[in-house]
Structures are given as C-alpha cells and as structure tokens.
C-alpha cells in the first residue's frame, strides 16, 4: 500500500513538473540565442521600422530570442529588450535549403515544398542570388560598396553643429 502511494506521489511530482515547464515555455521552445548577421542594426521598441529605436546592436552580437511576430523577432541584448527584423539575425526564420540552386536551376517538374516556402517569403536574399546569377552584368559590387559607408554619429553631429543645423 505504502509502495503504491509512493509511486503515485512520484507520478504527481513528474506531472506537476511537466505543467510547470509548459507554463515557463508555452511553445515548447527553449530559450534560443541568435546572432546578428547584418551591420547597422537597431533594436526597435515595436515590430516595425517606424517605431523608435531602443539601442544599436553590432554585427555578430548574440541576442536571446523572446518571441516572434510576423517578420520580427523580439530579443534581449545585454538586458535591453526590443525587436529586430528576422532578416537581420542568422536563424531569424526557418532555414530554407538549396534555394539559390532552385532559382537558377533548370526546369522543375513539380512544385516542391521549398518553392512554396520561397514564394511565401517573397523577395529574399535567395531571390537576389538567383537574380544576380541570371544577370551578371549588374553592378552589385558597387551597391555593396555604397552600403558599406557608415557615417560616424559623432562626425555627423559635428557636421550639423558646424552648419548650424538641428
């Protein structure tokens, strides 16, 4: 009789532990670290580029995933909580494998799941890769060069001040 009660209590403990874990991680997703893969990124207070930036996040920074909403991920970076566009973090969205090859490859006999996933994502780096491959005359190298230039905020401030600008 005592043995049976002991077993029941063990089961009760295990069940309660399970419920506790479900409450802590309702999605079943454990805390996950993401790496910021693009430069010049900001944490935004809301999931949208028009919301006020909270803090800059350097390229390569590790952030903890809190939640997802559409194209946005809510993250924690050094105690600051905010939103990043999923394209700015490695692993921000579910990986879709082999898409550039799919885009540039020969005829596809039937619509594959990867294609459906790609269509749902719209214009992505994978689409750009396919476009570049098919249009080698385009000057993406200079586009990258233009984007690399970052004006130092302190220098911009000095420029504004010198010119009597707000």
């Amino acid at each position: 009789m005592r043995t049976r009660m002991r077993i029941q209590r063990r089961w009760l403990g295990a069940a309660l532990l399970g419920v506790a874990l479900l409450v802590a991680f309702p999605s079943g997703v454990w805390p996950q670290n993401l790496t910021v893969s693009l430069s010049n990124q900001q944490l935004y207070s809301q999931p949208g580029f028009t919301s006020p930036p909270v803090a800059p996040v350097p390229q390569g920074a590790q952030v903890s995933l809190i939640s997802r909403e559409g194209d946005w991920v809510q993250v924690d970076y050094q105690g600051k909580r905010g939103w990043l566009h999923k394209a700015a973090v490695a692993g921000g969205g579910p990986p879709v494998s082999g898409l550039p090859a799919l885009l540039s490859g020969g005829p596809v006999r039937q619509t594959t799941h990867d294609e459906v996933a790609l269509a749902g994502k719209g214009f992505t780096p994978e689409v750009e890769a396919g476009f570049r491959q098919k249009n080698p005359g385009l000057n993406y190298a200079q586009v990258d060069e233009v984007e690399r230039l970052q004006v130092d905020p302190a220098r911009l401030q000095a420029f504004l001040q010198e010119g009597g600008l707000n």
Binding site: L102, L103, V108, T111, A119, G122
Partner: peptide, 14 residues
C-alpha cells in the same frame, strides 16, 4: 521560366 513557383517569383522580381 526555369522552375515552377520559384521561377515565377524570380520572374516577378525581375
């Protein structure tokens, strides 16, 4: 165009 839905998305992009 060279591939089902993926080809169509690329074509749309172009």
């Amino acid at each position: 165009y060279g591939g089902g839905v993926a080809g169509a998305v690329l074509n749309l992009f172009k």
